[in-house]
Design a protein around this nucleic acid. Structure first.
Lengths: 330, 330
DNA sequence: GCACACAATCGAACCGGTTCGATATCGGGC
DNA sequence: GCCCGATATCGAACCGGTTCGATTGTGTGC
């Protein structure tokens, strides 16, 4: 392993000149710079991370901290998201580190160490619960950060889907085909993302002059079944379902079929996240594809801005989505 | 941010004594150590990563490099795997870094930088293709490494599922219920994992005195459809399918249903990976749950051993699996 | 009472970069 | 011919830890 002193010696310059040359400083004569660069190539020189970050104060690394990794997200989504983060980091000359705590308590411990020990230059906080302490920690430490899956918060950079539009688009699609009794199987009522989706859903229903019905699902996808059954027992009309996530949509589909209702003939269904398997189910499931890659990329862009600005200005980004229409809602 | 010099000053000892005390060196008197520890707590001291690794030569970080991230794996699997890696790393006092190259070419570039710049102390190489250059790079550099999803290679630590047993167990389950015409929808014939699975499948068929049929699927899950249709057109009997992955199983299921065959009455099906959504499909899909968490954990354990040993002895681990029986193969 | 082993602590060097202030060289203006 | 400023380079300090060899202090054996 060659060090910068090896380079300097071979190029016949001092260590400081070698460093300046390697960092393309204008002060060094171009001929000298070339000699240094040649030496670096000849010796296969690569500056050591730790040394560089010790002296420069930068780690050139970003951190993803996800207290509930994969709890709500599925497959393709997470990997596309990671790739988005990684692409952004690479373009900025950064490396991405992912940490996977068991729960929010461990997440908090890790976050504190991460900041104190300077593991990285900034952190992406994924899906923090709405009231959480994680945010308070990073803010208190003045550590660059971005919140993911959160609607705009004053003074903090956030990236999220446009949940209002997501739900509205799904509902409009169903209503456009003439459905008149739509139901939203939503997330927990206290989560802002669920509130936004309810808003979008209701707005589409209002525009179509149709009554909007909403059920809140708190728990695993299986929780959809009793909710839906009770609703059917009560004789509520139903011909369209928007579900908060694909597994919920599949449980709904199954429940309906067992009640003798056919999908999509009697009830059309749209899920969310566009999980990898949705195209293979029977019937295949329409789903809103949330642009996971854009989510990751935008998060990194805001994070890099926060690192440069020293967090002076917070940015907010909403990323796009696409409704993927399949057999469950022709 | 307090440094070790702040601690030393407050505890009234030299920097070197403070360092020894913090690292629980037996040479320092326990009373002195306590004074140092008290000072560290009082000043909320955390050693800076970069400084520690510059002087110690250790980064206390491990790397996961996956050239084909999520290409074959789905959801739950990957997140469980990550958690396994992370748990192992944490227990060893390490941090986990994940890098997500676009393809094997980029993976190679990253790997070289990673080694040269000493980003971490070791790397887990995930699903490298059987003949690849990545392995040659790490071996040439003498960089600690573990191969994932590869059958044992001399001199290199590997972790994998017991692919022979995986396929055998799935086949035995189907044959136990009286099926006599089983088909294995396998991966590409040149991949060793596929060869192992074929072996396991054939052994179960031989034990049951039944003819084994195997088709090799190379490409996306949709590629199953034409293969299967041709087989049915040729009048081959079929009453059981073992598929190399869940999406393939679902495509097979759909294809069969469209041919008027019912699942599981006419044909029973078992998939692999136990994707999150398999429990919600209709019928729900039996699947072999590969122990992703154990995969991650064992990979880290071998990696840590390789780091300590300077790679003197290679280890091989096969991790367990569980057949999850659902409606597709009662 | 002195040499000696041993425990506890310390100062200084070191890891491999970056950066600041000092120095040498040179051409141009007066 | 002398001074000045610009240009190119260098030496040394620094970042925050770890570790080695030296130093001091204590009790033991003879």
């Amino acid at each position: 392993m060659s060090t910068i002193r090896d380079i300097a010696r071979r190029a016949g310059v001092s260590v400081s000149t070698a460093s300046l040359a390697l960092n393309a400083d204008a002060r060094v004569r171009s001929e000298t710079r070339q000699r240094v660069l040649d030496a670096a190539v000849a010796l296969d020189y690569h500056p050591m991370r730790a040394a560089r970050s010790l002296s420069s104060g930068r780690t050139w690394s970003l951190h993803l901290l996800d207290p509930a990794l994969g709890a709500t997200l599925t497959s393709g989504f997470f990997t596309r998201f990671l790739r988005g983060l990684h692409d952004g980091a690479r373009d900025g000359g950064f490396t991405l580190t992912v940490t996977v705590p068991q729960d929010e308590a461990e997440a908090r411990t890790i976050l504190k160490r991460l900041i104190a020990e300077r593991w990285s230059d900034g952190v992406v906080l994924m899906n923090p619960s709405d009231d959480d302490a994680l945010l308070a920690d990073v803010v208190a430490a003045g550590f660059p950060h971005v919140l993911l899956g959160r609607s705009p918060v004053a003074g903090v950079s956030t990236v999220d889907n446009d949940n209002v539009a997501v739900a509205r688009d799904a509902a409009e699609h169903l209503l456009a085909s003439g459905r008149r009794s739509p139901l939203l199987l939503n997330g927990p009522a206290h989560r802002t993302f669920a509130q936004d989706r309810e808003r979008g859903f209701r707005s589409a229903c209002a525009d179509a002059g149709v009554e909007a019905r909403v059920l809140h699902v708190d728990g695993p996808p299986e929780a959809v079944r009793p909710l839906l059954e009770r609703s059917l027992d009560e004789g509520e009309p139903l011909d369209a379902v928007v579900a908060v996530a694909d597994p919920h949509a599949l449980v709904a589909m199954r429940t309906l079929k067992e009640r003798g209702l056919s999908v999509p003939a009697d009830v059309a269904i749209v899920g969310m996240n566009n999980d990898d398997l949705t195209r293979y189910t029977d019937p295949s499931l329409s789903s809103v594809d949330l642009d996971a890659h854009a989510l990751g990329r935008n998060a990194v862009e805001l994070l890099l801005a926060a690192i440069d600005d020293h967090g002076s200005g917070a940015g907010h980004r909403l990323v796009g989505h696409t409704l993927v229409i399949r057999e469950s809602s022709p």
